[in-house]
Design a binder for these strands. Structure first.
Length: 966
RNA sequence: GCUUGGGUGGCGGAAUUGGUAGACGCACAGGACUUAAAAUCCUGUGUCCGUAAGGGCGUGCGGGUUCGAUUCCCGCCCUAAGCACCA
């Protein structure tokens, strides 16, 4: 043991030893409880960034903790190695994507190993390797068989000049990111996975995991799935005078979500004689003044030739405007055109004009809506703009509340009364709260209702609440709720509509016209049509290389050896599908593969997965809250339906870590970010920034805290940090500086604190090493095998033991509730307590040496999840064993409750809720005694003198509050 | 606009879920050691008044409930993230 702490030396030593001994390798062991600790797999960009370090530090702390608790811990890592950057590198630099990717993986693996994360490296996987993507294809074929994978026409962003599809990001601003040509929408056949078939289940399954997932993630998923209950209604269409109507096939009235979306997006030649709309407010249908359809609605396409030139031009204009992406927050002005077509309201028999509306989305519902301006804000705006009629059909719920003002005030008072009541009655408070909420809500409704009542022929705004139907034929007088139900039933009975549930969720388009992905295993034969590749023929391998121009269709289409094949059915020459799969496919099931990573016949052995899965703890960024985490929940259900797994929810607990951010400096004058060493910062004596200016010309600079990035000069390279401070210090800082969910501000001075802490621990152990190692075997035996709470200790030895056991309690509690920052504080406190132990090792009495040894041993064990290298090293120094903490079978310490208890506790005494004095008493001092002590306290007497003591509140072991009057 | 978080010292953050607000760390100030610096150690550090003892104020703002509120209730303000004309 060196006198000084050299992080590099210790860390390399233990990384080597762990690897040699297979310390973190786990196998199925039915006799032990298992724990699956999973971190999101990284994209192999080549360099680790701080976000990774944070992610893996959290995961590793948990893995270590659980291992020390005796769990059989699965802690794997792999590479999300398919995707755009490799292909970009190929296009730009002409490198081979495979080599580029493998190089990056090698670099990053080394960086991870330098961090000393406790992975079972035998289980490493990489999505781009045939032995992995073979099973992407395997799953695709299974889903194809089950009807979960299908191909359909869809609109994509298309650059007419480069002849290529563009992602939404690449079509930003409505122009191609490469050549600047205006982007077109093009129909292209794409492969989809039918995630919508599980929409209801994905929503319902949330109750199973809500305890373990952050609420915001579940809410985001809920919104994304976007379930809404309503009805569809069909309107018969006929041509206006002088326009010939073109009829298509009759639209099926059988409703399924997939069906509606198919009809809406134009893949079927949909009916031209009926328009199907979706509404959540069928009760307002008598107020419809028009039918609005999307510019892409099939009825527009099939009748287009018969429209007047003016209408045609307007529709084209709307399409162009729609193609332009809009910024968040930007409100697009309502626009539209009357097509001249007419539709009949099946309820009222009224004839309504059919308009194209720019705010009707082809992607949602049926691509057509009924416009009810009196009761929908958007329709209201539209009607105002084009001077369309506005007819009110819903009125206030209860005419008795017409005199709104008094009523709602009265109700507000009532709700306040209820609030008071709820506070008084703890038990019933919940029920009462609800009641008061209802009152609050109703008072709101009444407020709005008043506006509804004023409404006549020319309302000033839309009334969107529920109410009582008016001007609605036989339905007049019914409540909205009743009318919704009954009108949907009526529509169903008469075959022009039905109650239905609509989802915002779309099927998952997985086709990518790219090279660096898993080829979709499909063959097109002139005679047999679309033919799946036989499972025995998997994998469909990517060719070594392809012409990477970044222009035109998929590079795979330009590789004849890949494209040309033979039909598996009839043997005739055929062509392969040249689309590859979305990389989210790889990440939807990778952590199942970790359980059985080398299986050649199956994605995994279901029995092995039944042992390791589900994942106990998943850790990653919130940015995956919807896409990845929704896809993988879908994938699990699909696997369940394949008979591979027997559960629905793959992840029990999800921790979404915050971003790592750094201070950045922006000069408005230069309109650019400035590197830190070119900025002068003036701080006040406390360190608060007073001003920041450019070093060169003294012009002002804006200081901000933003996500780390190279262009902002506010990033740090974790590898450099590890080199300078050591992996243990970097990891401690990453965990200590902020709660895992929060943003983490990276501050170089902060990491100094972590280093200082480790050095203090190291120095202490160095000073005491001889004394402790002399008694180590005896003390450890004692601690492990007998009840040490009976050992009498006094003075500072007793105090230290108390601190030790309080720390164990706190740290264990914190780990169990997934708090990773507060245990570090507790470890520091324990280390400070050791520092306060003012005695030389040689002079220590038996009980003092015992107390110190106990404290140091437990400190090392509890430090291991944060700083495993130094923990191992110190353990070795003191125990004399070179096997390390884990190999020697060490366990996380357990608290001895009566040692954690203080001999004396401080009880605050308040007068009227203000702290006035404190007394020291034995724990569990009786209530009466506490009261007497408090009242006789000199300081308290000062404050109560000449006043009437109304009552004394005594909370044993907590506080005393004396209430006085006058 | 909707949804969900969050607002505590100069900063990151603690606070057993109604019971001593500011643990721990950073930064800063003073001191010790040193020829000097670094490192280390000690002391102080919410704010205002006061030499001090002590006292006033203080967890975004305004109310409320309570002996007692950072914590519960009502109403605002600010802020972050996600979604966004979803019919």
């Amino acid at each position: 043991m060196d006198e000084k702490y050299f992080a590099q030396k210790i860390e390399q030593k233990w990384q080597k030893r762990w690897a040699e001994s297979g310390a973190f390798e786990a196998e199925v062991d039915a006799a032990r409880p298992k724990f699956y600790c999973l971190e999101m797999l990284p994209y192999p960009s080549g360099r680790l960034h701080m976000g990774h370090v944070r992610n893996y530090s959290i995961g590793d702390a948990l893995a270590w903790y659980k291992r020390l608790q005796g769990f059989n811990v699965l802690h794997p890592i792999g590479w999300d190695s398919f995707g755009q950057p490799a292909e970009q590198a190929a296009i730009k630099k002409g490198v081979n994507p495979r080599e580029w990717t493998e190089d990056n993986i090698n670099q990053m693996r080394e960086q991870l190993q330098r961090l000393g994360v406790s992975y079972d490296w035998r289980r490493e996987i990489a999505a781009h390797r045939p032995e992995y993507y073979k099973f992407d294809q395997w799953f695709f074929l299974k889903m194809y068989e089950m009807g979960l994978a299908y191909k359909k026409m869809t609109k994509v962003n298309w650059c007419p000049r480069d002849q290529t599809t563009l992602s939404n990001e690449q079509a930003s601003g409505g122009v191609c990111w490469r050549c600047g040509s205006p982007v077109e929408k093009k129909d292209l056949a794409q492969w989809f996975l039918r995630i919508t078939a599980y929409a209801e289940e994905l929503l319902g399954g949330m109750t199973e995991i809500e305890a373990g997932w952050a609420e915001r993630v579940l809410t985001m998923q809920k919104n994304w799935i976007g379930r809404s209950e309503g009805a569809f209604v069909e309107f018969e269409v006929r041509a206006a005078n002088g326009i010939e109507r073109v009829s298509g096939e009759t639209h099926s009235t059988e409703n399924s979500n997939a069906e509606t979306s198919t009809a809406a997006d134009g893949s079927d030649k949909a009916a031209a004689d009926k328009i199907r709309i979706f509404t959540t407010r069928i009760d307002t249908i008598y107020g419809a003044n028009a039918i609005l359809v999307s510019a892409y609605h099939p009825i527009i396409e099939s009748n287009f030739d018969n429209f007047s030139d003016e209408v045609k031009a307007k529709i084209e204009e709307i399409k162009i405007e729609l193609a332009k992406p809009t910024d968040y927050g930007e409100e697009v002005e309502k626009d539209g055109v009357d097509t001249g077509l007419k539709a009949t309201n099946p309820f009222s028999g009224e004839e309504l004009p059919v308009w194209v509306g720019n705010y009707v989305m082809i992607e949602y519902g049926t691509g057509a809506v009924m416009s009810v301006p009196a009761h929908d804000e958007r329709d209201f705006e539209f009607a105002k703009k084009f001077n369309l009629s506005i007819k009110q059909v819903i009125s206030a719920k209860d005419a008795a509340f017409k005199e709104k003002d008094e009523t709602s005030i009265a109700l507000d008072k009532t709700s306040n009364v209820f609030d008071k009541a709820s506070n008084v009655l703890d038990e019933t408070s919940k029920t009462l709260d609800k009641t008061s909420n209802i009152f609050d809500k109703s008072s709101n409704v009444f407020d709005k209702t008043s506006k509804g009542l004023e409404t006549t022929n020319n309302p000033s705004e839309a009334f969107t609440e529920y109410g009582i139907l008016m001007n609605s034929g036989e339905w007049t007088g019914k409540t909205s709720e009743d009318a919704k139900r009954e009108m949907a039933e009526y529509a169903a009975k008469n075959n022009f509509g039905k109650a239905t549930v609509n989802f915002r969720l779309r099927d998952w388009g997985i086709s990518r016209q790219r090279f660096w992905g898993a080829p979709i295993p499909i063959i097109y034969c002139e005679h047999c049509g679309t033919v799946p590749v036989a499972i025995a023929d998997l994998p469909v391998r990517l060719p070594e290389s392809a012409p990477f121009t970044g222009v035109g269709e998929s590079p795979l289409a330009k590789v004849p050896e890949f494209v040309n094949t033979f039909c598996p059915k009839c043997g005739a020459p055929a062509r392969r599908e040249t689309d590859t799969m979305d990389t989210f496919v790889d990440s939807s099931w990778y952590y199942f593969r970790y359980a059985d990573p080398h299986n050649e016949d199956m994605p995994f052995n279901p029995e092995v997965v039944a042992y390791w899965l589900p994942v106990e703890q998943y850790i990653g960024g919130v940015d995956h809250a919807v896409m990845h985490l929704l896809y993988t929940r879908f994938w699990t259900r699909a696997m369940r339906d394949m008979g591979l797994v027997n559960f629905d929810e793959p992840v029990r607990n999800l921790l979404t870590q915050g971003m790592v951010v750094g201070e950045s400096y922006y000069s408005e004058e230069k309109a650019s970010y400035i590197p830190p060493d070119e900025v002068n910062i003036e701080r006040d004596e406390r360190g608060k920034i007073l001003s920041a200016a450019l070093a060169s010309d003294d012009s002002p600079v804006k200081v901000a805290v933003e996500k780390m990035s190279k262009s902002k000069y506010n990033g740090v390279d974790p590898d450099d940090m590890v080199l300078i401070y050591g992996a243990d210090a970097v990891r401690i800082f990453a965990l200590f500086a902020a709660p895992a969910e929060n943003e983490l501000v990276w501050q170089e001075t902060g990491i100094d604190g972590a280093v200082r802490f480790l050095q203090r621990v190291y120095r202490f152990v160095y000073r005491w090493r001889e004394a402790i190692s002399g008694v180590w075997p005896n003390v450890v035996t004692l601690l492990e095998e007998s009840d040490t709470s009976t050992i009498e200790t006094t003075g500072q030895a007793r105090k230290l033991r108390q601190k030790t056991h309080q720390s164990i309690k706190r740290i264990t509690d914190n780990f169990e509730s997934y708090q990773f920052n507060t245990p570090v504080a507790a470890l520091m406190e324990l280390s400070n307590a050791l520092g306060d132990f003012k005695i030389e090792p040689e002079a220590a009495s038996g009980e003092e040496l015992f107390a110190v040894t106990e404290a140091v041993r437990n400190l090392i064990l509890m430090l291991a999840p944060y700083a495993p290298h130094i923990a191992e090293e110190l353990w070795e120094v003191l125990s004399g064993s070179d096997k390390g903490i884990l190999a020697s079978g060490a366990r996380f310490p357990t608290v001895v409750e009566n040692l954690a208890k203080a001999d004396e506790i401080e009880i605050p005494i308040q007068v009227n809720g203000k702290l006035r004095s404190r007394i020291l008493v034995a724990p569990e001092t009786a209530q009466k005694e506490l009261e007497a002590l408090a009242l006789s306290d000199a300081k308290i007497k000062e404050h109560t003198d000449g006043k009437q003591i109304v009552k004394v509140i005594v909370v044993p072991n907590r506080l005393v509050n004396v209430v006085v009057k006058g």
